[in-house]
Amino acid sequence: MKRKHLTIQATILLILKYFSLIFFGFVAVIPVVSCVITAFKTSEEYQSTNVMTLPESWLNFDNFIKAYQAANMGRAFINSLIVMVCVLVVSIIVGTQLAYVLNRFKFPGNTLIRNLFLFASLLPGVAMQVTVYNIMSSLGFINHLYGYIIMMCGTDVISIYIFIQFMENIPVSLDESAIIDGASYWTIYWKIMLPLLKPAIVTSCILKGVGVYNEYYAANLYLQDKDLHTIATSLYTFVGPMGSQYNLICAGVIISLLPALIIFIIFQKQIYSGITAGAVKG
């Protein structure tokens, strides 16, 4: 009797479990899937059929080509790539160096520097842009890729925490034995720390890379010149006159999120661990 009762309960739990997962899985993909469906429709098809009706042909790439050209996405991909590579290289070097110093040396101001960064992370970005804009314009950084790149390098806190956390697990005895062998601090950083930090660097590269790739608010403020659009801001092309041609817009949106999707599929595990590591400390 008791056994039977248990199995009924277990079955209900099982059904509930899969029902909720499938339901919310659906909720998560439907907005994107409807976009994919629409992106493959010709204009007549889009006008005449319901949005959720499947397209006649899954090989109709016309919208993608049109959207790619209309938003000048080739140029935008190059800009996004330049911005990403520069920001990642600079912020990884600067971030690991700072983390090395903060983790390995006790000096007056160590805690102060940590707190300065922590406090900075509390300030909402949009509010700061009210006056960052003023600074960017007095430095002559507006409408220059380098200006935007320098600004993006300066607003990073989470990856520093990931690095510090990771360094705490690298034994200090490694440094000490290197010092006995006559290594300078630079050598220790460059030859010992940096190679050992590789997993943390990969994690922070992916997280920060996706963040930079998706950044549109500041890019829209500081890179208004059409030739300087990044992938995210190239989508602004579809605001206005093209605002109701959703088959075209959806194609543009899908193109823009493909790189993130590919990175996600390849680096799923690192992304998850990065999210967790960043949140615990931040």
């Binding site: 899985g25 994107v32 998706n214 989508l235 817009i249 959806c250 543009g252 992304i271």
Partner: peptide, 28 residues
């Protein structure tokens, strides 16, 4: 996990378009 996590990786501006479309009268 992947399906539910992916929306987090879409840029804000793309989300704007996706949901303008999603909520339009008679659409998704």
């Amino acid at each position: 996990k992947g399906l539910m996590f992916f929306p987090y990786l879409i840029s804000g501006i793309a989300i704007g378009f996706i949901f303008k479309f999603f909520y339009t009268r008679g659409f998704v």
